[in-house]
Nucleic acid binder design. Structure first.
Lengths: 323, 323
DNA sequence: TTGAAAGCGCTAACAA
DNA sequence: TTGTTAGCGCTTTCAA
């Protein structure tokens, strides 16, 4: 029997190209010998590596792991493995990581580390590398994106606070280099048309200390603020700290809404009202989009953008003002 | 110029095997053409894939991501990429995942999903596949291991409670299928030599509900218990819930100590006293151990075991009894 | 439906 | 120090 015939027999994608009897014999022999086709040799021949690069900004950020799980699950089922790379939120490392992943002939890239100016990533679009962005977008808008509908989440948060009776609502943003911050800020501002600009301060990172510093600044002016929409949950916890330092209580004096619904924010004191995003589904959808792109071969014009619904989880950090 | 010469010129590991002038010319040409050697072809020839499989039980478990970061960082620096696979705490999936990783010719495996009986993994030892276990061990003890010194952590916890004046201390374990549970339980029992067996109940998973159920059972008997050493932080939070349901307060009525120091357990109410483990360093050390194993070629007899120090973080969930 | 032959891009061994 | 040759294990023409 010839190797070529065996190869054909073992290829499930070939319908009647080979006799059923032969297929059986080949399979039996393969089982008996414990034969596993060498993926390297196959790759060399077929020009397909069988894996996808997954670039994350920081695996330690609680938003990321469920997304990666969603990606991994879908890709794995499709027979693709995940090469994981962490950029540690560093642009140079992102560039290095993407270069390495490309040189390793990844079939595609899923990138969760995008920053708005995204040099490295724009180049991927230009060179038509199969790429899908998750959560974080580039301003150029030249790459496919799967993200949560943050704007709707922020609108829901503002509406919730307004319904509780809040009139002076502030926003503590995350870092301005991220599209998530921009989207949330824009949605926040649009929720107050004409009514005089609401207070906005910027946190320089998605961390508790950064949130605390920004919120402290906000509270110094005070300005009648009775509620804060935070850029994310860490920022919200920073707000808690700043409120405590200022001798204010949450939610009695100031209500706080977070974003993401990360693990345990329902266990802190007070349990945090927050905008939940469908993290796992973001991963699943991003992987599916990449798979579709790989099957089609070339990029679509314009790149698809999918926004998944968010959900406001009301807990105890929001209450009527003066309550 | 011949391709073989070019290949040699581009290989940094070859000292004076090629003329400096030639090296320069080759490099210039390579740069000009944007030449990148094909890793697939190289792999086929050298029989080295350039990546390592990283098997995790559940990326969503907060203990895992920092470990993976440590692994990824070290491996990446060494020129190896990480193929990530999640078993979802499922033995069948672990078997499938390991098989797939092996068939993809990973140079080695780092496994964080081991269970004590670990069929699949014992086979790796038998077949001399380069493998390092992190955190979770198999009973057979036939594979290299990097883990935290949980026993010391539990001893520190018990000592801390004893010094506060607690005499009736209980243990709520995690799932018995895990070596971490066994190690912590053994250390706990050894801390009470002769003094009559202290109360022990078993949580069937490292989750808040499982911890709550187990702790509720414990509290039904009550039995004068004034302190609980929990199998991990999630179990500890389950204890919080059970205490609250039973109308008891922590730490006034019952003190609680967790294990792992996961994110935000310092923010819950009361802030959790817990045994911190060096997660990132576990990853770093596991990766280093694998690298050493790969360089040596064959397995050591007996397999190395490294325990990294833990640290008791005292917060507000522990206080003197009747306090 | 199967066999034969070629070649993916690289590097290791050997020869010059 | 460089050139030659061969072959890693597979799949894909093309021919039978």
């Amino acid at each position: 029997m010839h190797p070529a015939t065996a190869s054909r027999a073992l290829d499930p994608a070939l319908p009647g190209r080979v006799a059923a009897e032969t297929v059986r014999r080949v399979r039996d022999a393969a089982d008996a010998l414990g034969y596993r086709p060498d993926p390297t040799a196959r790759s060399l021949r077929t020009r397909r590596s069988g894996f996808v690069g997954v670039v994350v900004p920081d695996l330690t950020n609680p938003v990321i792991p469920p997304i990666v799980r969603g990606i991994e699950e879908v890709l794995w089922t499709a027979g693709l493995a995940c090469l994981l790379a962490d950029t540690d939120n560093d642009l140079e490392r992102e560039a290095a990581v993407v270069a390495e992943l490309r040189s390793r002939r990844c079939e595609g890239l899923i990138v969760a580390s995008a920053t708005r100016s995204g040099e490295t990533l724009e180049e991927l679009a230009r060179e038509d590398v199969a790429t899908v962005l998750v959560t974080r977008d580039i301003d150029a808008g030249t790459l496919p994106l799967v993200a949560a509908d943050d704007a709707a989440g922020v609108r829901a948060a503002v509406t919730h606070l307004a319904e509780l009776g809040h009139e002076r609502i502030a926003h503590v943003t995350g870092p301005l280099s991220l599209s998530t911050t921009a989207r949330r800020l824009a949605a926040f501002l649009e929720a107050f048309p004409g009514a005089g600009r609401p207070p906005v301060v910027h946190g320089e990172a998605f961390t508790i200390p950064a949130g605390e510093r920004a919120a402290a600044e906000l509270l110094r002016a005070r300005d009648g603020v009775t509620a804060i929409v935070a850029g994310n949950d860490m920022i919200a916890l920073g707000c808690y700290a700043a409120l405590e330092a200022a001798g204010l209580r949450c939610p009695r004096d100031v209500s706080v809404v977070g974003h993401n619904d990360m693990p345990l924010v329902g266990q802190v004191q007070p349990p945090l009202t927050t905008v939940a995003i469908p993290q796992y589904e973001l991963g699943v959808e991003a992987a599916r989009m990449l798979l579709a792109r790989l099957r089609r071969g070339d990029g679509e014009q314009p790149p698809p953008r999918v926004l998944l619904p968010t959900r406001l989880v009301v807990r105890a950090s929001t209450a009527p003002p003066d309550g």
